[in-house]
Nucleic acid binder design. Structure first.
Lengths: 98, 98
DNA sequence: TAAAAATACTCCATAGGTATTTTAT
DNA sequence: ATAAAATACCTATGGAGTATTTTTA
């Protein structure tokens, strides 16, 4: 399970397509296509139904979504928690780059 | 942020040392040492205090712990959620390999 | 000096890019 | 025919292993 793959999974949902999502993520379409395929193979289930022009979540994809969110939120929280300790008091929490 | 690194972070805590943790994780000590160092560099903070024979969490390390657990639990939940949908009804949830 | 951690290197797996092919409208 | 997804290939980066060096109790 790779965090990067989970992160890439999300914009495909919101953009209803790999090409559009790749554009938004500033990576090339082939990389995102491969990433999604790899995640699907790893989980042993199709996450999207590719029906021509539109890409929509399958039941497996919908099942994955909540936990994927948990993981992604968790990684941000991890970064922030460490940053908050390291930062001098009274500097406001970091909340910056991924 | 790599899930593998977060996963490796945990046994170092419970075993109070990299060598012992590596033994438990069935990887070589140098790999675990590097992994921890990489995580520390990525987060910009020392996670452990290496005082000779014992390796103990720093404040940053303690700060990281809860979110690290969240992420790891989340990845397992993700796997299980997809497996539960894919599996024929009444087969009990998977809960298997990492 | 003995046990643990860190470093240097090598090899292999994986991510991302370019180019091309397949597929469905 | 067109637009999107998949595939083939190449390169670069990162993980894990072996061997060695540093460190400290």
């Amino acid at each position: 399970m790779e965090i990067r793959r989970l992160r890439r999974f999300m914009p495909v949902i919101t953009h209803c397509g790999i090409t559009a999502a790749a554009r938004a993520e500033l990576i090339v379409e082939s990389a995102l296509s491969t990433s999604v395929r790899d995640l699907e193979r790893e989980l042993g289930a199709d996450l999207f139904e590719r029906t021509g022009r539109r890409v929509v979540l399958t039941e497996s994809g919908r099942a994955l979504l909540p936990s994927a969110r948990t993981v992604l939120v968790g990684t941000d929280a991890a970064r922030d928690a460490v940053a908050a300790v390291s930062a001098p008091a009274g500097c406001g929490s970091a909340r910056s780059r991924r």
